[in-house]
Simulated assay, not measured.
Amino acid sequence: MPTALPVPIQFELPEGWRAAPPDAVGAPEASFVALHPQPDARFTANIAIDGEYRPDAARLSAIAHESVERLSQAVMSVKVTGHREIGSADAPGFTQTLAVSAIVGGVARDLVQSQVYLSMVDVADPRKRAVIRLVLTATASQHPYVLGDFQDFVRTVRLDADAAP
Results as ranks from 00 to 15, higher is better:
A48G: 14
R59W: 11
S31V: 01
D56V: 07
A140P: 00
F153V: 05
S72Q: 15
E52W: 10
V112Y: 00
E15I: 10
E52N: 11
I9Q: 09
P2W: 03
R155E: 14
A34W: 12
V154Y: 06
P39G: 11
D149Q: 10
P8N: 12
D162V: 00
I63M: 11
Q151R: 14
G148R: 12
P39Y: 08
L98D: 07
G105L: 02
A24H: 07
Y117Q: 02
V80F: 00
S114L: 10
A130V: 06
Q38P: 00
F94Q: 12
V25G: 07
P2M: 10
A57C: 02
I103N: 13
S119E: 14
K79I: 05
P126K: 13
V154G: 07
V135W: 00
D160W: 04
S72L: 05
V116L: 10
A19G: 09
T81C: 00
T156Q: 07
T44V: 15
A140H: 10
A27Q: 15
E69I: 13
F11G: 00
F94I: 02
G82S: 12
D149A: 11
D125T: 06
P6S: 03
V157M: 09
R70Q: 10
A62H: 10
F43H: 09
T3P: 01
L147N: 06
A89D: 14
E66G: 07
V107Y: 02
L13S: 08
A102R: 02
A20F: 06
A124I: 08
V107L: 04
Q142I: 04
A27P: 03
F150Y: 10
D40T: 12
L111K: 00
F43R: 04
F150Q: 01
A91F: 12
H65D: 14
G105C: 02
I9W: 02
G93S: 05
L111G: 01
D56F: 03
H143D: 07
G87A: 02
I132P: 01
L5N: 05
P39F: 09
S61K: 15
V68E: 14
P21K: 14
D125Y: 03
R129T: 11
A138M: 11
A24I: 05
G105V: 02
G106F: 08
D40F: 07
P144A: 08
I132Y: 01
R54F: 13
L60A: 03
V33F: 05
V135H: 00
D162H: 01
A34C: 08
A74K: 14
V135Q: 07
V135S: 10
R70T: 08
A48Q: 15
A4P: 00
Q115L: 11
A161C: 01
V25D: 03
A108Q: 11
V25A: 06
A108R: 14
P144K: 06
I86L: 12
G82H: 09
V100L: 09
R70E: 12
D56W: 01
P2C: 07
A164Q: 07
V100W: 05
G106E: 01
D149N: 14
P22Q: 06
A30R: 03
